[in-house]
């Protein structure tokens, strides 16, 4: 278990909650494990319910604790996973470039996000499995077009080779960070707080930031 940098990850300036969504089998879990642990597991199993990971990254000197919820893709779990949109400031909507149908479902997923998440959630469209270019069924242009139409960021990744993975997460986190910073500058504007609803972006006091990691080897 354990994200990278576990020794210091109790100290952070902001906490951003992200959700990973998309059809089952598109590689959400491996995207996450690549990002959080630099691991790719071929034998990765289907996510049942929701799985969780986190990682700290630094953006412009601020330590961001990215708390990422990896959801099951199957329809049956939709009712359960809806719950996890709450408080999310970012969503990675993943499809498989080698499987057309997963792209065809992107709009349905978007609808889902817009129904359940905050209206200002930052959504990024992620075409995963770019290493399978020979089996590609969704062209980059087509996805780009959809992203543009829907106002989403877009990127192609390979959780296998890790190509694009770090970029994906850093881009979405940077975007959220930028918005949060703007809001901080704009403080007082009623609208501003919306993106950071419910306090999901947390400014930790200095002394808290120095809090020690729990003792006793609680994490590996």
């Amino acid at each position: 278990m354990a994200a990278a940098s576990s020794s210091v990850d109790d100290a952070y300036d902001y906490l951003f909650k992200l959700v990973l969504i998309g059809d089952s089998g598109v590689g959400k879990t491996n995207l996450l494990s690549q990002f959080a642990r630099s691991e790719f597991n071929l034998a990765s199993k289907a996510t049942i319910g929701v799985e969780f990971a986190w990682k700290n990254v630094t953006i412009e000197g601020d330590v961001i604790k990215a708390q990422i919820w990896d959801t099951a893709g199957q329809e049956r779990y939709r009712a359960i996973t809806n719950a996890y949109y709450r408080g999310a400031v970012g969503a990675l909507l993943v499809y498989d470039i080698a499987k057309r149908v997963t792209f065809d479902h992107v709009e349905a997923w978007l609808k889902e996000v817009r129904e359940h998440a905050d209206s200002k959630i930052v959504v990024m469209l992620v075409g995963n499995k770019s290493d399978l270019s020979q089996l590609r069924q969704v062209s980059t242009d087509e996805a780009q077009e959809l992203a543009k139409r829907e106002g989403l960021a877009f990127i192609e990744t390979s959780a296998l080779t890790k190509s694009g993975v770090d970029t994906t997460f850093s881009r979405i986190l940077e975007e959220i960070h930028r918005i949060v910073k703007e809001q901080e500058l704009d403080r007082g504007d009623d609208d501003a707080a919306a993106v950071v609803a419910d306090g999901e972006a947390v400014v930790v006091d200095d002394d808290k930031a120095d809090a020690k990691a729990p003792s006793g080897g609680c994490c590996k």
């Binding site: 109790d10 906490l15 604790k65 809806n82 419910d198 306090g199 999901e200 947390v202 808290k208 729990p214």
Partner: peptide, 17 residues
């Protein structure tokens, strides 16, 4: 509660809808 307010915030985030 090492993480004090931080975790409380997480608490809020992950509160049961």
């Amino acid at each position: 509660d090492e993480e004090g307010t931080g975790e409380s915030a997480e608490d809020a985030l992950c509160a049961t809808p």
